[in-house]
Nucleic acid binder design. Structure first.
Lengths: 192, 192
DNA sequence: TTCGTCATGTAATGGGTTACATGATTAC
DNA sequence: GTAATCATGTAACCCATTACATGACGAA
């Protein structure tokens, strides 16, 4: 009936509120540690988002002003509604391409504890192949253009490449441990 | 008299056109290798940008349709105007905080070959301290919240931290070589 | 009493993408 | 002839930021 205010932010909020009800200010802080050292969310994004999620019934406002004694002042605590929980589950079940995007992946990973083992694996593998595609594109492009590039451009390219490699190695380790634990206790019926 | 269509994109275009005149399509390709494996520019950004830069006199269109035989079709080749070159020089002389941003830094670095040695050093050092700030913020935040975080969140945080560390090490090496070459032939009057 | 930080919000703006529209050229 | 890729552009939209506005609370 209204917004569609972003995928990632909404998901992040849903995921955080699933653990415990929170008010906007606190939510932002957690969001920013969650999203990693890069990119922070501003109030100008968060509050409108909460407003929309409230309007679409994903979350409910629990005005906790009166509650906890005379200590804390008017702050609006949000919690998930049944609909919100449902939406979160849908999102967490999604292991498709949308989950291997740069922005999505971090958030999806942060909520792995609430994600099924097979979906985790799918996301990890998808992310890895995504990075490998990118790696290949760079290397071929670099192969064609080498020698024409100055020292710095080359250095930059090299560094970017190594970053991707490192990321892939990280994913490899994670995938290995995931697979090991799935094999150890195959309770969640691997599709394979 | 109009736009202000982005800083980075404009700078990237100026820098690329400084080497040689190019048309939009080709420009985009180079832009995307330049900007690294992450983030690519779309035509929807580039063409309007070129339009604006044309309007503000930074670049000139050299319609090369007739020129090179019957081979190539109508494609608009852009080159820097005197004003454009001037603007580029201004930008390249800027070694202040704006140059250590995530988006800016990559582009600034890519044009280091056209940048004064002292400015290069300033940018490198600025970038490094920027990352170190970030690192510190993460570690303190992590120190406060450790033990309450699940395995995956922790893993993510850890990985982010290592990425930053790696970046810092890279910068350290670059700074060292820069300093060495400045000391070797101190032609560009180090401020120190 | 004033400063920092907690706390919530809105309006203007910015910088980008997607999808669309168009058409020529090249290779099969 | 038809598909891929070269080539240029526009309009609608998205997501987020900045700057602003407001105000209570705790500590110095």
């Amino acid at each position: 009936m209204s917004s569609k205010r972003s995928g990632v932010l909404e998901l992040a909020v849903l995921g955080l509120l699933h653990t415990s009800p929170l008010h906007g200010y606190e939510l932002r802080k957690r969001l920013n540690t969650l999203l990693g050292p890069f990119r922070a969310i501003s109030y100008g994004s968060l509050y409108p988002c909460l407003k929309d999620m409230l309007a679409s019934g994903l979350i409910a406002a629990d005005d906790a002003a009166s509650e906890s004694g005379p200590g804390r002042r008017s702050r609006i605590v949000y919690k998930l509604t049944a609909e919100g929980k449902e939406r979160l589950q849908e999102q967490l079940a999604e292991g498709g391409p949308s989950a291997w995007d740069d922005e999505s992946f971090g958030v999806r990973f942060a909520f792995f504890a609430q994600t099924d083992a097979d979906v985790r694996l799918k996301i990890l593998e998808g992310r890895r192949s995504r990075l490998e595609e990118r790696r290949e594109k760079v290397t071929t492009g670099l192969g064609r253009a080498r020698e024409k590039l100055d020292r710095y451009t080359l250095e930059l390219q090299q560094h970017g490449l190594e970053s991707v490699d490192r990321e892939v190695r990280w994913l490899n380790e994670l995938i290995a441990t995931e697979r090991a634990s799935v094999n150890a206790r195959p309770r969640s019926a691997a599709t394979n």
